[in-house]
Computed example of a mutant assay.
Amino acid sequence: MQVNGRCFRVSIMSADRGVAAARALTFVLAWLFGVLLTLLAVRGPAKAAAKVPPVAALGVPHVLGATTPARRVLHEAVSVLMLASGALMLTVGARVTPPVSLLAAT
């Protein structure tokens, strides 16, 4: 860019470094949160499964204390609700301008 006969270099990259760093940090924090949450979520079922011998797990479901139909419907309803809310949050996060950042809350 020239102003009064002088040349100036304008770097767009230097202004965007902060935004890029914030996006990278948001990505890393989201990934870390997802991994830790997943590990925490599978810990309980893994402990419970370790207490059942493999041959007993092949047994008849009603003997092992399967859930009632009403409880199964509740589980399915909660699962569908969580799936829908996750899809909604993913869509909103992808379409919001400017991008939503975890750093914006601090």
Rank of each mutant, 00 (worst) to 15 (best):
M1A: 10
Q2H: 07
Q2A: 14
V3P: 00
V3S: 00
V3Q: 05
V3I: 14
N4D: 10
G5S: 03
G5F: 07
F8D: 03
F8Q: 12
F8K: 10
M13P: 05
M13I: 12
D16I: 05
D16V: 04
G18N: 03
G18R: 01
G18H: 03
G18T: 02
V19P: 00
A21F: 11
A21Y: 06
A21N: 10
A22G: 03
A22K: 04
A24E: 08
A24Y: 05
T26S: 07
F27L: 13
V28I: 15
L29A: 07
L29K: 13
L29E: 08
L29G: 00
A30T: 07
W31Q: 08
L32I: 12
L32N: 09
F33V: 09
F33H: 11
G34F: 15
V35M: 02
V35T: 05
L36H: 04
T38H: 14
L39S: 02
L40W: 15
A41D: 10
A41T: 06
A41F: 15
R43V: 06
R43N: 13
G44M: 11
G44L: 14
G44A: 13
P45I: 05
A48Y: 09
A49Q: 14
A50E: 14
A50W: 15
K51I: 03
V55D: 14
V55L: 11
A56N: 06
A56S: 07
G59C: 03
V60F: 13
P61Y: 09
P61H: 03
H62D: 11
H62P: 06
H62W: 13
V63Q: 11
L64H: 05
L64M: 15
P69Y: 14
A70Y: 03
A70L: 15
R72T: 15
H75E: 03
H75V: 05
V78A: 06
V78C: 02
S79V: 00
V80D: 14
L81V: 09
L81W: 12
M82N: 02
L83S: 14
G86V: 04
A87N: 01
M89Y: 09
M89W: 15
L90K: 04
T91Q: 06
T91A: 10
V92E: 08
G93K: 01
G93H: 01
A94N: 05
A94H: 15
R95N: 06
R95M: 12
V96T: 07
V96H: 10
T97V: 12
V100E: 03
L102A: 01
L103T: 15
L103D: 03
A105W: 08
